[in-house]
Write a protein that binds this DNA or RNA. Structure first.
Length: 380
DNA sequence: AACGCGGGGAA
DNA sequence: TTCCCAGCGTT
């Protein structure tokens, strides 16, 4: 065990079992009253909780709900997911982002069928060994679905716990996270019936996250309605705005990218499926490139020529779109373009596809937006 | 330890 | 604009 999480000497509050018991009770009582009615809470089987946890990674709950419902309808268990068609799976995931999550789930489902008789494994080490499942997700799935006493730590609980114990050190440091993991473990109910979800780890872990989402928010935390405000060290010190402390600052980078709209005079558009091992692998998109492949329009034209084989002419910019990918703030310059020569057959992996065909194929959100715009404007 | 990975919601 | 979101895997 690590030393006291409390950073204030002489006030090792987080080592105080009675203090922790008050916090625990405050969280559980509050959760019993205020838990949101989320679909995976209705029937929290390991499989359903697994799907919800993967979808919720770096994604807000409200965004996840409709995806979760569609996903469970189409893939009701691990066996169905293991048998899923890769392209259809990506289409189901389209818009959620972090597409590796879907590929990892697919691989994990196959492992579950192969090694665990199709049932999500209830041993922590087995769960942790599955692709896409780390320390947080393994603990979350097994505690929420099966009431096992495993700690969790993610965006919400980092904030809630660091405020509760008055942690002034930066949560970007590993030592801070170690402290918070320890606290998460110590906060788990000590005595509970395995079947008593309401007073067990299943509710405690969800209560802490729910409090972070609804009350203990990043800015302007609602301390006046917080069930554990009296126990909160950050509030006692008036440091709600300073905790959790961060040292890193997000730095964004402006970036220009280029896309080309090329039609074949039959209402079809030039597209390709992105090759494996790269960003947006497996998803369909219009010809598109950015640095270092395409640093400007002329460079993009060269890239197009190299990839398509034959001659191509960039006409005018018909649209610019702004969007964000991780740290990049991208301006996408969309050109109308025409093929003016070269072999009649397209080089791999380029194809002509109609908007109707593309409706059933996975595309990045940007690609989908561009396609919708093209359809709306009756380009051809 | 730092970075890459998508996209959306909110202030 | 900037930050944040039920993080994980790689380097």
């Amino acid at each position: 065990m690590s030393p006291s999480p409390a950073s204030t000497a002489g006030d090792p509050v987080s080592n105080d079992a009675r203090w922790r018991a008050r916090v625990r009770k405050g969280l559980l009582d509050w959760f019993a009253e205020h838990a949101r009615d989320l679909p995976w809470r209705r029937d929290p089987t390991p499989y359903r909780v697994w799907v919800s946890e993967i979808m919720c990674q770096q994604t807000q709950v409200a965004t996840v709900v409709p995806y979760f419902l569609r996903f469970l309808d189409r893939y009701p268990d691990a066996a169905a997911l293991a048998d899923a068609d890769e392209s259809e799976l990506m289409r189901m995931w389209e818009g959620l982002g972090y597409y590796r999550r879907a590929r990892s789930m697919h691989a994990a489902a196959k492992q579950i069928v192969e090694n665990h008789n199709g049932e999500f494994p209830l041993q922590y080490r087995d769960a942790l060994a599955l692709p896409g499942i780390g320390r947080y997700t393994a603990g979350a799935i097994l505690s929420i679905s099966s009431n096992l006493p495993l700690p969790i730590l993610e965006g919400n609980t980092i904030r809630v716990f660091s405020r509760l114990i008055g942690l002034r050190d930066s949560v970007d440091e590993k030592a801070s996270l170690d402290t918070l993991w320890d606290f998460s473990e110590q906060l788990l109910p000590r005595k509970f019936s395995p079947t008593d979800r309401a007073r067990g780890p299943a509710s405690l872990n969800q209560a802490a996250m729910e409090l972070g989402a609804l009350v203990c928010t990043p800015r302007d935390p609602k301390c006046l309605i917080c069930p554990v405000a009296k126990a909160c060290q950050a509030r006692a010190a008036g440091l709600q705005a300073e905790i959790p402390a961060k040292t890193q600052k997000m730095k964004y980078e402006a970036r220009s990218e280029y896309a080309a709209l090329v039609s074949d005079n039959q209402g079809r558009w030039l597209v390709r499926q992105i090759p494996p091992g790269t960003r947006f692998a497996g998803m369909w998109d219009f010809p598109k490139a950015g640095p270092p492949d395409a640093n400007d329009a002329e460079h993009f034209h060269q890239w197009l020529t190299n990839h398509l084989g034959g001659r191509i002419q960039l006409d005018e910019v018909v649209k610019t779109m702004k969007h964000a990918v991780t740290k990049y703030r991208i301006t996408l310059n969309v050109y109308r373009a025409t093929r003016t020569g070269g072999p009649k057959a397209l080089a791999e992996p380029w194809k002509f596809r109609t908007p109707d065909q593309l409706k059933h194929l996975p595309m990045s959100t940007t690609g989908r937006r561009l396609l919708n715009w093209v359809e709306k404007n009756q380009f051809s």
